[in-house]
């Protein structure tokens, strides 16, 4: 409701009112059916704000890009315990300290879906206490191609020699 910077509501909230006092909107509302992925919607909107940020103030300039990275980490399945808390932390900085309304509302897609679908985010996390922010195998892929070796232990053997 209210476009990318507005509020994400569920079917159960269809009794709510379009009004200043409840759901404020400049006229925009978007309806998604259940064939849509919530994460894809949130990611689209979050990418949009990272692109739209003018860069004047620190919280929005850096925060929108950080939020994008942190959301990607979770959506792509690299998130672990604590990563949703971190997502909320970045979103909070953006909302409280951004210079203008763009930054102040840029985290709304994340915040309003977190509020309604916390289990969706939690399910996306790995069940380990810490997950590195990058995929070692993916990072080594080019080097392995160039070396003509693709066995997982290639780098270990080099150390031994």
């Amino acid at each position: 409701m209210g476009g990318p910077s507005g509020t994400f509501i569920t079917v159960e909230e269809s009794h709510r009112l379009l009004a200043y006092e409840d759901l404020a909107t400049g006229g925009s509302f978007i309806v998604f059916n259940n064939s849509r992925s919530i994460f894809q919607i949130v990611k689209n909107f979050t990418d949009f704000f990272a692109h739209e940020s003018c860069g004047f103030c620190t919280p929005c300039r850096v925060g929108t890009s950080l939020l994008q990275k942190q959301l990607d980490k979770i959506v792509l399945g690299h998130g672990s315990a604590g990563d949703v808390v971190e997502l909320e932390r970045i979103a909070g900085l953006l909302r409280q300290y951004s210079h203008c309304g763009l930054g102040q509302t840029a985290a709304n897609p994340v915040l309003t879906t977190l509020e309604r679908y916390p289990e969706l985010y939690q399910q996306q996390l790995k069940k380990i206490s810490y997950e590195p922010g990058f995929d070692l195998d993916a990072a080594l892929q080019v080097a392995r191609q160039m070396a003509g070796r693709n066995d997982a232990a290639a780098h270990l053997q080099q150390v031994e020699e």
Binding site: A50, H51, S53, G55, R61, V62, T64, S65
Partner: peptide, 8 residues
């Protein structure tokens, strides 16, 4: 200052 967002 030139550029926008993180590319400022």
């Amino acid at each position: 200052i030139s550029g926008r967002g993180i590319h400022k």
